[in-house]
Write a protein that binds this DNA or RNA. Structure first.
Lengths: 226, 226
DNA sequence: TTGTTTTTGTTTATTTTTGACCAAATGTAA
DNA sequence: TTACATTTGGTCAAAAATAAACAAAAACAA
């Protein structure tokens, strides 16, 4: 029950209740009050909360939300979408897989196939380890946050190949069926994959449909899997 | 009940709980605390978790990407070589890092530098996550066994870049200083890296020096770090 | 087999964390 | 305002966690 554990407990309590008290934390976590106070002082230094007499309050301008929770929210839906998309892939084909948490879900259903996957996503590569699938990794600059490759070199790399199908992860799909990306670099990669393949599938869970995003990158209508 | 088994146990626990403690791992796995601590240190080096007092936490913003190499002999020596090689790298430089268990050891000593690393090795990418270093991943076909990229596209990719230094992992170095590779594809990658850099360093532990390998790929004499 | 390397565990010393005590500060109620 | 209870911040000692050095055990190769 070290500091990291208590830190999470405290921040979780704060996320729910806006205000926490030393006394209740002492009881909940089972350590002395002085320890809790030291924790609060440490967390205040990290700008994760504001201390008050007898406890602490949430800080307003702190956007550090547990996106862990968010990614779990649609997990079940994404899994289904991934499975559905994988059914579209036939033995012997060459496919592009874009980066994104939904497209990643396809991988576990592709492992037994004798196909060639071209991807810019490191999690996809990781998920396709130790199996039949032949992997071609797109080269270029690594976006550490997204765990994916992008940039001019990546775009060029994609243009050297041609695939039967492309599986794209859009950030949003509006009512007209246009695709929206979260950044220019992602849009470029997705566009290139679409261009270099016979058919493009767009994977999107319900939270992404009927919305607009930051950058519209495709006005064609593609097959949408959701 | 070797390292691989414990590693899986530890990462599984982390995947569920965000935080693990040495004490609970000791109980669950049934080994001494120092062993667990050593495991955690090793996993931290691979960027698979972050050590804390009393345990470890999940790495934030990083999914299950887990690339690493098995079977390590002369581990201690390779670590020293890696550290030595890292000293040759100066702030602001661009470097190639070849695949191999010895070159991989450089990474933990490069994390604080503001450099650009161009590599074909997935474990290297994995080890350089969440740090200053800007990573450029060479694209092409994935060699699942070696966890590295090779092939024509990879070679072409390398030739688009130029680096100050290249750190090469040879399979053998004979008495005349010639380099030997274990396969043609590896030789091609190494050769390309050497060609595209101002200076090449060859990393080799004592078991590789004075021997011949399968394919001689460089007759120049390079700086050998051992 | 023997000898070597690798892994694991024990011991000791050091560091970090935690909790107890007490004086000072803060908040509350009359 | 005063009186009173609570909270807080120091110092210090106890407890826990860690690191380093060394020894034992296991795995491996010759």
């Amino acid at each position: 029950m070290g500091f990291e554990y208590r830190k999470r407990k405290i921040l979780n309590a704060l996320a729910k209740k806006e205000v926490v008290e030393v006394a209740s934390l002492v009881e909940e976590i089972g350590v002395s009050d002085i320890t809790i106070r030291r924790d609060l002082a440490a967390l205040e230094k990290l700008n994760l909360l504001k201390r008050t007499h007898g406890g602490a309050t949430k800080i307003e301008g702190s956007p550090i939300v547990n996106f862990d929770l968010k990614s779990n929210q649609n997990q079940a839906e994404k899994e289904k979408i991934g499975q559905k998309a994988a059914l579209e892939v036939k033995e012997g084909e060459v496919i592009f897989i874009d980066c994104g948490s939904t497209t990643l879900q396809m991988c576990s259903h592709l492992k037994h196939l004798n196909i060639k996957v071209i991807t810019n996503s490191l999690p996809v590569v990781s998920a396709l380890q130790n199996c039949q699938v032949s992997v071609n990794l797109i080269g270029g600059e690594l976006d550490q946050k997204r765990q994916a490759i992008h940039g001019k070199m990546a775009e060029w790399h994609i243009k050297q190949y041609h695939a039967h199908k492309a599986f794209i992860g859009a950030d949003a799909i509006d009512k007209e069926g246009h695709l929206w990306a979260i950044s220019e670099t992602e849009a470029e990669i997705s566009t290139a994959m679409i261009t270099q393949s016979d058919k493009a599938y767009v994977l999107a869970d319900s939270s992404k449909i009927g919305k607009k995003g930051y950058l519209k990158f495709s006005t064609e209508t593609h097959e949408i899997i959701s």
